[in-house]
Design a binder for these strands. Structure first.
Lengths: 223, 223
DNA sequence: ACCTCAATGAATGTATGCACAATTTTCCAC
DNA sequence: GTGGAAAATTGTGCATACATTCATTGAGGT
């Protein structure tokens, strides 16, 4: 086991709130003042406040003076803006990875994630599929070695996570896309920088096109 | 004057510390515990703490447990990582701008910034030149309409700001580069998306190459 | 002289209380 | 019944106090 990094209440509050937001337990639009949240988490306002500031920096909540913290949703514009960035940032991560020596442990981890994704795809477990998909992309980002890039990608992926789930549920078509991920991984493993970049870009572009169409078709103002 | 948005102590502390960091008044490596900083700013620890958390998220300081807040410097790796991102993100902003209607007020602002840059270039005022340069790029980023993109660009530009000043001082060659900015602006004004993207990318690439060479030549471990 | 361990001190993590500001509610005049 | 003003309520900004944890230092033993 790891050295058990001491967990502070701020971290605790941050993790729990983030988990609840990403899992839609706290839906977008939900709003509560600091004291209420503190009571619910069983701690004082101080650590909750710091956790909320971090969540605001993550783009997950909005702190409205005298109104409390409000869980943010995604407008179509937000969705476009985020994908515009994913579309250029993920190829950078993929390209970097393809041009540097790889950690075998990480590669194994990626492959096991793909296996999990395949299983989720087979059983139709959308939530598990998205979980695996995000994990795959997050691991790639972290492996890239550019910590700022990894941080941005993590934040962006978190912001669209719940939205993707909503849109995928509206889309009746089954999700697979596992082979696209395998292509990306094999391009990286074979050290083909351009192919890796292309694969990363195409993957996000296709996903974006499909999801944006649903967003459009259902005329959703916010998800 | 504006409606004078009420200024809270957190904002005050954040602004003052950020200003002192960017101006090298607080140099990289400088380190102080929360109570000291609070005393210096004439307020209690609470608002200072929140300001420091925001500065940490900005990548300007590091909070070391039991050691206090430490002003971050730039390693050659940081420098490369940041420019790798600027190199892909700024063309996105420029491309977006070239493909959307422009606010004339902003265009005038950009032109006045370029005039200021030209004057700084003539008088050899490096600090004013960098100030104008950053302002130009920041304005472009904000005009792009993608708030997340603008936020990332602002953060990245802030992180390299002091480093650029240091490197430019080491480089004896005079700074001009005003005409490169004018080219970028005219590409945007003539709605040539590809040219705008190219200009933005080339601009940053040349700057990066020149600065990275100095970084390398002087064998600086940190700036 | 060096290593170990305990004690002390300092800095952070957290709680609590107070003051101010903003919003809502209530009450009065018309 | 309606408009408005004043009071009450509520939430945040901030200060302060306390608890906890870590580092440093010094003393004592080997």
């Amino acid at each position: 086991m790891e050295p058990r990094n001491k967990t502070t209440r701020v971290d605790n509050a941050y993790d729990r709130l983030k988990e609840e937001i990403l899992s839609s337990q706290l839906p977008p639009g939900f709003q509560a003042p600091e004291p209420d949240i503190a009571d619910r988490l069983g701690m004082s306002r101080t650590p909750v406040r710091e956790a909320l500031i971090r969540l605001e920096a993550d783009g997950l909540v909005e702190l409205i003076p005298r109104r409390g913290a409000r869980i943010l949703g995604l407008s179509p514009q937000d969705f476009r803006d985020i994908y515009e960035l994913l579309l250029v940032l993920e190829p950078v991560a993929a390209g970097r990875l393809a041009s540097q020596p790889l950690d075998t442990v990480c590669v194994e981890k990626l492959e096991s994630i793909l296996d999990a994704m395949e299983e989720a795809s087979a059983t139709g477990d959308l939530e598990a599929w998205i979980e695996a998909d995000d994990m795959f992309h997050l691991t790639l980002a972290r492996m890239s070695g550019n910590s700022r890039l990894a941080g941005y990608l993590e934040s962006l992926v978190n912001q669209v996570r719940r939205g993707r789930l909503v849109l995928l549920r509206l889309m009746k078509a089954p999700v697979d896309g596992v082979e696209v991920h395998r292509e990306l991984l094999s391009a990286i493993l074979s050290r083909d920088v351009d192919a890796a970049r292309e694969a990363a870009r195409n993957h996000r572009e296709e996903a974006h096109t499909a999801l944006a169409a649903i967003f459009e078709n259902f005329r959703l103002p916010q998800i």
